[in-house]
Design a protein around this nucleic acid. Sequence first.
DNA 1: CGTCATCTTGACCATTTGGTCAATAAATCA
DNA 2: TGATTTATTGACCAAATGGTCAAGATGACG
Lengths: 207, 207
Amino acid sequence: MNVEKPRTRIQQKNRERILNAALDVFSAEGFRGATIDQIAIAAELSKPNLLYYFPSKEAIYTEVLSSLLTTWLDPLQAIDSQGDPIEEILGYVRRKLELSRDFPRESRLFANEILRGAPRILDQIEGPLRRMVDDKVALFQNWSRDGKISPIDPFHLIFSIWATTQHYADFSVQVRGILRTNDDAHYVDAEDFLMTLYRATLTPRGN
Amino acid sequence: MNVEKPRTRIQQKNRERILNAALDVFSAEGFRGATIDQIAIAAELSKPNLLYYFPSKEAIYTEVLSSLLTTWLDPLQAIDSQGDPIEEILGYVRRKLELSRDFPRESRLFANEILRGAPRILDQIEGPLRRMVDDKVALFQNWSRDGKISPIDPFHLIFSIWATTQHYADFSVQVRGILRTNDDAHYVDAEDFLMTLYRATLTPRGN
DNA sequence: CGTCATCTTGACCATTTGGTCAATAAATCA
DNA sequence: TGATTTATTGACCAAATGGTCAAGATGACG
């Protein structure tokens, strides 16, 4: 998967610094809002030096974005068709929420890209992601048919999970402003709430 | 409320055109990504002419943003403490979803502003919005105490409603990419799903 | 140490972009 | 109609920004 070839350890180190700094800046300012200078400063390199490692701002951005994508979509794949339906789905919600808590920069960068119309990852969405969603949708429908979970629309179930979990990263300013908090303590309550929300919805009537 | 004083009808018309064009461009490109030229072209005016009506890009942006804000937060206020608890909350969800469908530009502009850290509306969030949320949270707690709705965390309930409804506007590219759709037909299914989701969660056990 | 490859940077360039201004055109109105 | 106010624009400017380049510094290695 990782086709990179960081020949020297200096290259290794500086590429990492740049990509990390770029994630900081891009996630906070968006692609257009970010400047090479900001990234260079954050990476503690001069601008021409940064451009020695990457040919352009665009190249840095696409590398950050694509390196993020797999990690970001992984939890969905991890849903096990052999496991207990409700626990599998709740586990997915939990993992997505953890992702929001632990990787908010990635979440915001992704959100920003989608907001802008996903110009660079639309094929990823209409390709691999769509296939994986279709796969899980079929699984959910089987679970519904077998009475393991309530008969709800599986597409919108997935959308709602994405929405509710990513909200805590993407809209964290609003969440914190309303809860009057600066730390991540509210993630505990968020998890409780989401577990209740989805358990209530997924548990078939008669249980 | 509207303290504007559009003296002539030309001013009236052109200010409207500019604000509408600005909403188009800002919601699609974000503040930094948008250029005065783009807005001017969209409004079919020359750039200096546009700057005859508004002193700066910033001024256009803040006017668009603030004119949006009241409309955006209104539905929350409309929740009636005298109505049927579950129907009131479901009605709120429905109205928020309609807002996403009918005013996606506004939703995306708002989302973008929050993503960037809400630099221009943080006081609105920590002021009026927070007060309104606190008010409704207290109401929900009363309903919970009286057994009218399930005992769930009212803050996170509100967050989840914001998240699930705005998702359809803010992430519409992703939603459409996965559903293979270009129109708004999926909003019907979305509404069904959300009604089921929140009814299942809010209905107290024993009903 | 000497040589070669890698790394770093100050100076520079072209384009984009927010914004100004003086001059002109179009309304408005006495 | 003529005078005055309002609206419009081409030309222009300064700053910001993405990117280049030649020259020098630093490492790797026999």
